[in-house]
Design a protein around this nucleic acid. Structure first.
Lengths: 144, 144
DNA sequence: AAATTAAAGGATAATTTTATCCCTTAACAT
DNA sequence: ATGTTAAGGGATAAAATTATCCTTTAATTT
């Protein structure tokens, strides 16, 4: 569904959001441990998230990554996915055609349309807060 | 959604099915041209499809690939996908956890569940005949 | 039976994705 | 101001995926 990078990005964002809820700023090392991801690779992804203003970062002692609490409801899964994987998930054709459309549908077009539309809708309506709330309730887990 | 290999596999199968409808056996070269895929790579994929009895192959002159007409309604998209990509699509977690389940749901589990279930259902109910029929009606296309 | 044709299969290469290393830059603490 | 800390960023490496080449095997045709 998503690239590994994107999976890490989602996990990292959820973790940062969770900690931001406690007004905690968290460092790369802590994040990588929490979501069980390779540190250096995660650093790259956090850079992208930071550039895309999905998280904010501060250098130096007691620095690290955090998020604007007020933004947690507004920030949608779709924005993370877009920042890392682009819009391939949205406009991607089931058979990899890029000209695939309503007017020139590929053989699987109509079969896939519903599902991709729903996926899009789900990503666009699910906020980071939705996900981190689940996490706090113990209904879900982040680390393998 | 699927690997490139899987995309080629679906396209190739649809094309072979279409031609099998005319009782035509088709060769690698023709298939690769029809679906606009690299020939040698497509050969590998056809080997897998053949091993999985999704298509049948005959060597030598007037050989090539074909399918049992009677099977076109029975053969589902899911079988092609499984033969090439395994069952990652079915049991794949949105965040890449392999222990993700009802009992131990990842943060996106419930959000993704519906969509993955629908995808699974769609793949398991869509027959190759459904797709090749569309193609014949000119409603869809195979070659870019 | 021999020649020809086309798939099967092994080895290898190119590309993309994932991952690591190390040096630079910026923020904070003293 | 200086040292320490942590993110930023460039270069490189490893792994996986995609792709090609070439030899072998098995059919069909003559």
């Amino acid at each position: 569904m998503f690239s590994k990078s994107c999976e890490y990005a989602i996990k990292a964002t959820i973790y940062i959001a969770e900690q931001a809820g406690f007004d905690k700023r968290v460092g790369l090392k802590e994040i990588a441990q929490a979501i069980d991801s390779p540190e250096a690779f995660t650093a790259k992804i956090l850079q992208q998230l930071s550039k895309n203003r999905i998280v904010d970062s501060v250098k130096g002692p007691s620095g690290g990554f955090s998020m604007d609490k007020k933004n947690l409801e507004v920030l949608k899964l779709s924005q993370i996915v877009k920042a890392i994987d682009g819009d391939s998930v949205y406009k991607g054709c089931g058979l990899g055609f890029n000209e695939c459309s309503e007017k020139k549908p590929c053989p699987v077009h109509y079969k896939f349309k519903t599902i991709r539309d729903e996926l899009r809708n789900m990503l666009e309506t699910t906020s980071v807060k939705d996900l981190s709330m689940n996490l706090n309730k113990g209904l879900a887990f982040l680390k393998k």
